[in-house]
Amino acid sequence: MASILFLVLGDMTAAIMGVSFGGDSFGILKLGRAGKKSLEGSLAMFSVCCAVGFATFGPIRLREYPVFFGALTATLTELYEPFNLNDNLTIPVFSSLAMQWAFHRIQLC
């Protein structure tokens, strides 16, 4: 559920912030494979994904670790679109795999 919310809310926020404010503060710095992504949009996506993750996994101890890696993976997946696949497919898959890996690591503690 969290990885789908990362896609819906995070990708939407990245697009809105990137179009509205992208290039205003850091106009020289263009990110992504084709240079069409902005730092403002990526930071907005990471922030929204972290907020969604903290809200979703609220009662779980040590939730910061998997939420951070899930949000970071979702943001990097949106930014670089690995395997030339649409990010609407890859964001939920990669972010859920990253969170599963991180939850497994904290389970061993």
Rank of each mutant, 00 (worst) to 15 (best):
M1Q: 13
A2K: 12
S3T: 07
L5F: 03
F6K: 10
L7W: 05
L7R: 01
L7E: 04
D11G: 08
D11P: 04
A14Q: 00
A15K: 07
A15D: 11
I16W: 12
G23D: 10
G23R: 11
D24P: 07
S25I: 13
F26K: 10
I28C: 09
L29N: 12
K30F: 02
L31Y: 06
R33Q: 07
A34F: 15
K36C: 05
K37C: 06
S38C: 00
L39W: 02
E40H: 02
E40R: 04
L43S: 12
A44W: 02
S47G: 14
V48A: 05
C49M: 01
C49W: 12
C50D: 04
A51E: 08
A51C: 08
V52D: 07
T56S: 13
T56H: 15
T56E: 14
F57Q: 08
F57M: 02
R61V: 14
Y65M: 13
Y65D: 00
Y65G: 01
P66R: 05
V67I: 09
V67K: 00
G70A: 12
T73R: 03
A74N: 13
A74E: 10
T75F: 02
L76F: 03
L76N: 05
T77F: 00
E78I: 02
E78N: 06
L79A: 01
E81G: 00
P82T: 00
P82H: 04
F83G: 03
N84M: 01
N84T: 07
L89E: 04
L89C: 11
T90K: 01
T90H: 01
V93N: 01
V93C: 09
F94P: 05
F94E: 07
S95W: 04
L97M: 14
A98P: 00
M99Y: 03
Q100A: 14
F103Q: 08
R105F: 09
I106D: 00
L108C: 13
